[in-house]
Amino acid sequence: MSTILVTGGTGTLGRLVAARLRAQRHEVRVLSRHARPYAVDLRVGGAALDAAVAGADTVVHCASTPRGGDEKAAARLIGAARAAGVRHLVYISIVGVDRVPLGYYRAKLAVERLVEGSGLGWTVLRATQFHDLVAGVCAALAKAPVMFVPSGVSDQPIAVAEVADRLAGLAVGAPRGRVADVGGPEVRSFASLAEAYLEAVGKRRRVVEVRLGGRVYRGLRGGGHLLPEGAVGTGTFEEYLVGRFGG
């Protein structure tokens, strides 16, 4: 069995990846800023990071934040992995990072480039947005008496468990470079997703679509973050809502 380090291993995706790898009897190390014994801030690195990667065969890099610092964190991780002789670096990215000019997407694309040029064996998987993210956006928008959503924008949410299954499978295999992207089973207007969320949580809100401006909005209206030809997921948003909120 392999020794596999999962960064962001206490997060939404990372904890599921770690659980699947443990179920296959791999030795799994979970790295996050507060998880002992591998409590590491990847943006800082240092001896704690070196200890976390020492002896690891594979690193699955799930740690990420829209608050900034992903590129610096990836550079630190790659440097430590090279020094430790890690054979395989697996990175989870997002569908559309090269098509939607969102700052966070640009950072994810930059990390992809770092991974590709790392000199390590590598695998990159892109996925569409998780159900959890869409529900979180809906929850924030539903705080107001009227729920304003962007007009002409669709989404294709996927179950995080399905992405974890795919990522864990890639982690135990040989490096494959950029693999086929994965997307959720349905491309849905954001308004319809908002309506489904409101019904699930029992809130009454008027959903109003509004036209926005800017390059990011144009990229989203153009479907740059969608993958209709790669709809491999099976879990729907409604099924996720029932599992989370009951029904």
Score class of each variant (00 low, 15 high):
Thr3Asp: 06
Gly103Gln: 12
Thr58His: 07
Arg221Thr: 15
Val111Cys: 00
Glu112Ile: 01
Arg188Tyr: 07
Gln129Ser: 11
Val95Met: 08
Ala56Pro: 07
Thr236Val: 04
Ala18Tyr: 03
Val187Pro: 12
Ala75Ile: 08
Val90Gln: 09
Gly183Ala: 15
Ala23Val: 04
Gly173Val: 13
Leu198Asn: 14
Asp50Lys: 05
Arg221Asn: 08
Ala23Ser: 10
Phe130Pro: 01
Gly121Phe: 02
Ala18Phe: 04
His131Gln: 01
Gln129Glu: 11
Phe190Thr: 15
Ala75Asp: 14
Gly119Glu: 00
Glu27Trp: 10
Arg20Lys: 13
Leu5Met: 04
Glu195Met: 13
Pro145Gln: 06
Gly214Ile: 13
Cys62Pro: 01
Met147Pro: 10
Gly184Ile: 14
Val40Asn: 03
Thr10Trp: 03
Thr12Ala: 05
Val242Asp: 11
Ala23Met: 00
Gly230Phe: 09
Ala54Pro: 06
Gly213Tyr: 12
His26Leu: 02
Val17Pro: 01
Pro175Gly: 09
Gly183Met: 05
Lys203Val: 15
Gly219Val: 10
Ala52Cys: 04
Arg126Thr: 09
His88Phe: 08
Gly246Thr: 02
Leu133Cys: 08
Val100Glu: 07
Gly246Asp: 04
Gly224Gln: 05
Tyr197Gln: 14
Asp41Met: 05
Val124Asn: 06
Gly8Thr: 01
Ala168Pro: 00
Tyr217Phe: 11
Arg166Thr: 14
Leu13Ser: 01
Pro150Arg: 10
Ala39Lys: 09
Gly233Phe: 09
Leu193His: 13
Asp50Cys: 05
Ser192Lys: 14
Thr10Arg: 04
Pro175Ile: 08
Val100Ile: 10
Tyr240Pro: 01
Ala18Asp: 02
Gln24Thr: 01
Ala144His: 08
Tyr197Phe: 13
Pro157Cys: 06
Ala194Asp: 12
Ala73Trp: 00
Val210Arg: 14
Glu209Cys: 10
Thr7Val: 01
Val201Ala: 13
Glu27Tyr: 07
Val44Gln: 12
Thr236Glu: 02
Leu49Ile: 08
Ile92Gln: 12
Ala80Phe: 00
Arg166His: 11
Val115Ser: 06
Val115Ile: 07
Ala174His: 06
Ala139Lys: 13
Leu226Trp: 05
Gly46His: 02
Gly14His: 00
Cys138Asn: 13
Arg29Pro: 02
Val163Asp: 02
Gly69Cys: 10
Met1Asp: 09
Arg22Ile: 02
Gly169Asn: 07
Asp50Gly: 14
Arg211Thr: 15
Val90Glu: 10
Ala159Ile: 06
Val160Tyr: 02
Val201Met: 09
Gly214Gln: 13
Arg20Ile: 01
Gly45Thr: 13
Leu5Thr: 02
Asp165Leu: 10
Glu209Pro: 12
Val210Asp: 13
Leu220Asn: 08
Pro185Cys: 14
Val201Glu: 11
Pro228Ile: 09
Asp155His: 14
Arg99Pro: 04
Ala180Phe: 09
Gly169Ser: 05
Ala54Tyr: 04
Gln24Leu: 06
Pro150Ser: 11
Arg99Ile: 02
Pro150Asn: 12
Gly219His: 11
Gly152Ala: 10
Asp132Ile: 00
Val90Tyr: 08
Val146Cys: 11
Ser32Thr: 04
Val30Glu: 02
Ser192Asp: 15
Val115Asp: 04
Arg33Gln: 07
Val242Glu: 12
